[in-house]
Design a protein around this nucleic acid. Structure first.
Lengths: 157, 157
DNA sequence: CAACGAAGTTTAATAATGCAACCAATTGGA
DNA sequence: TCCAATTGGTTGCATTATTAAACTTCGTTG
């Protein structure tokens, strides 16, 4: 079976999914972005098996999403915190959240809303803008082949 | 495996992942948003096993992301197209794409860039704004308990 | 109407997941 | 200081998912 790896794919969506596209990683990242850091915190919050959590944490560290830091409350245990690369996933979490807010069949089951810390008011929907400031929908965009950057650096197809 | 269902979770991120958080669904949705509609197109593009594709397509139809339409080129086969709920996933695809563009170790392997159809220029990064127009980062946001919905007042925007 | 292709289904092997039990090091407490 | 509980795992085993490939069932084509 050997779950097909998407790592070599040329599509950036696939490449992202290859890094954190499994069943648990994004939830771990969500928890981390909410300030959870300890193995036990993740395990209690997510309710996943500990061996799976071990595997996932290791993979996320390996891929540069999380890093382990020695302590924080003085104990000899280690903690898992987001790297900048991990913090960069935040917009994806927001997009997922907003999709549920808009399309879920049971919005009454959603417990939380995202607000800006200053005013406490709900944030606006993520907006995709053109360089001249127009709001773009899916139909207003296209994909173009990435212009070749440096010299000849043709990896695989 | 019995992949634990996230359907009943109160976190909107988990609820979204429950719908299309598996290994293939988002790629199928990506393909659909690029205009692919036929079983064979998806299979050829994604290179996944046909039985898996069958399962995934069925699940996505069941969950209201895709719908089957009778034809389009006159043949008696059916096609799979995005519903509005499915089109709503577009920002998530954009967010995934932009994360890879920013953080991938091998950006030279990314084949395409997203441009606005009018000008052909790259789109800007998704921006999260407060209601008064400030750009918000993860640290500028918090989660609040969703206010209980009043029956008489109108639903929130 | 025979052959071909599209769209699945079935089957069997293999890999990922979940659960529970186990274990070593750390910590807290008496 | 010594012991018990907690933390952070590891190990086995049963269960479920994924995969590739062979097989089926149509519709389409020559």
């Amino acid at each position: 079976m050997k779950r097909t790896s998407l790592a070599g794919d040329s599509c950036p969506v696939a490449r992202a999914l290859d890094v954190f596209g499994d069943w648990w990683s994004l939830l771990i990242i969500r928890d981390a972005s909410l300030g959870r850091r300890r193995f036990g915190e993740f395990q209690a919050s997510l309710g996943l098996a500990k061996n799976i959590l071990t595997t996932r944490l290791r993979a996320l560290v390996e891929r540069g999403i999380l890093k382990t830091v020695p302590a924080s409350d003085g104990s000899a245990y280690q903690e898992y915190v987001l790297t900048p690369k991990g913090h960069g996933i935040f917009p994806i979490l927001v997009a997922l959240r907003q999709w549920t807010e808009e399309f879920d069949e049971h919005p009454d089951e959603i417990a939380t809303i995202m607000v800006d810390r200053d005013k406490g008011k709900p944030v606006k929907k993520l907006a995709l803008l053109s360089q001249d400031g127009r709001v773009l929908g899916a139909a207003d965009t296209t994909l173009k082949l990435r212009p070749a950057r440096k010299a000849s650096r043709r990896a695989s197809a």
